[in-house]
Design a protein around this nucleic acid. Sequence first.
DNA 1: CTTGGATTCATTTTT
DNA 2: TGAATCCAAG
Length: 670
Amino acid sequence: MSGALDDKVILLRKDASAGRRFQVDYSSLLNPAQLEAVMHDEGPALVVAGAGSGKTRTLVYRVARLIESGVAPQAILMLTFTRRAAQEMLSRVERLVGERSRSVTGGTFHSFANGVLRRNGKAMGLPGNFTILDRGDMEDLINLLRGQMGLASRERRFPNKSTLAEVISMARNKARSLEQELEADFPHLLDHSADIALLAENYARYKRARALLDYDDLLHLLAELLKDDPAVRRRVSDFFRYILVDEYQDTNPIQAELVSLLAATHQNVMAVGDDGQSIYSFRGADFRNILEFPQRFRGARIIKLEENYRSLQGILNLANEVLASAAHKYSKTLFTRRSGEFRPLLVRAQDEHMQSRFVAQRILELREEGVELNEIAVLFRSSFHSFDLELELQRRDIPFVKRGGFKFVETAHVKDVMAHLRVAANPADAVSWLRALTLIHGVGSRKGQRLVEALARADDPEQSLRNKATEVAGKHPTAAQELVKLGALMGSLRRNLEPPANQVGAVIDYYLPLMRDAYPDDYPRRERDLEHFQQIAQRYRSLQAMLADMALEPPSDSIGGVLAADSETECLTLSTIHSAKGLEWKVVFLIWAADGRFPPPQSMHVDELEEERRLTYVAITRARDELYIVYPIYVFERSVGYTMGQVSRFLQDIDPHTLACASLQEEVED
DNA sequence: CTTGGATTCATTTTT
DNA sequence: TGAATCCAAG
């Protein structure tokens, strides 16, 4: 300001103009490793990013940088774990470079596959109105076929639908034959292998005939399309010149193959991941994908992000120690420059209820200290672990949302409504027809199945239903009436002029009386869910898009809690560790850190234990400032009664300098 | 054939 | 505790 008379020399930097090439000053906003990733141009790259190391930030800046460098936004494809993650990234990119970024394509592998197949599936005989089967639908269909094939009533018990779905799906996700899959993971079912193979064949044929795709089909058919049709492959690959894959450690072999196919013409793949956070092997994910990335993509550049911007060192020390004994290859040690002291606290409670009371009490204290509820989360291994806590929170009027676990689209009444909508969108969808029909009193599985056969062939479902109604009118007048009503509903839905919310409304009007009949005890609660469903429907302009989303990206709120998920009310978060992936909070509680709950009894084998260890690591690294780990000593087991519980094996021998211990005591009145 | 009651069963994580 | 399966009555 002053000193105008000083004869001061101002240095002109050599690179001034080069530095101004970008609006965003990347070099001052990023650390060297992040900058390297952001400035990486062509060719494959693997970013190994520890928890909280600014992974998302790096991806966001790289997308911004590409756009600023003149890459067309629509040439960028971001494959992330959830569509929410993709959207969050895009909105952050938008803040940097403006709305150009909106035409970036992003989503899960499944939703991306859905889009490509809807547009390009015709060539391989796949109609554009195919229906996506979620796991429940898959099981229903398998069960139907299992019954038809006479496998259900055998002397030797044939595996149930969920086991069968598991075997069939796993084999496909891991790109193995059924036989190999059975040998590897289900040796006790090998006796049934011929029948299972037959069932799997029937299942595949049935789906093909009715334009039904399960989750695995989405990926497989896309891979098939890209492999078998060089023209499509070239077109798609040329179109998406830059591919970014988030959470690469959680991809399965098919997804890794898809990435290769998509990058066929240019090899411009940046994969980001953390082998220490691979927690989805039960879904076929294989963390060897990330270890083998350099072999799959020759000449891949490897960049490691080790500096942590999230957690206090005390929390990182515990995370490092938990992971230290894991067998993983890209070893890294998290460190931070954040100042502040905190030592994670291990709290021993007498029983589950004391655990809940401690958590609730500490949360209230935190609120007194000025910590918002939004900044606090309670994590647990399995969804049901929070039941007791939920009651305690309700009692104390602490609002919360629960993520993970049983979702509201999985409830019977929502599925019922969806079945009607799906039939309207794809009349060949026999699974949904059957569901809708058997809701009618007087129509069971037999009549239903016969009707379904007729309906799948008929051009005019309304007419067929009316015919059937006159047929049964003598014996079942009420059933006949219902069939006519259902026909009328279908007629109006298929004329398809209404926005989805109205169509949902029409189905609900038809369905409510049936539901009241079926659930006399708790139909009011279910009615509220359906209202919520109708609200969700208002976000969509096409029924097709809504139905695809319900299978691929269902609304994340679980049932039971407050349904106002998007409302502004401040809320505590309860979440499974899996659903907490990629998120962070100021204060984190981990409950049920007891051996036998975490890790659960069915995950006591070596490989699974490794994954449970990584899961512990993920849980710990969600916390920024404070971390409380709680476990009860007396655990009630249905079969044995109360037993003595021990702290989770992953936390057993931790140095007390890293993890402080405390136990709870009742206040004594004097 | 359908339905509803009785009995048995096994209880993780999710696109 | 709730869901899946079995069984017998209508």
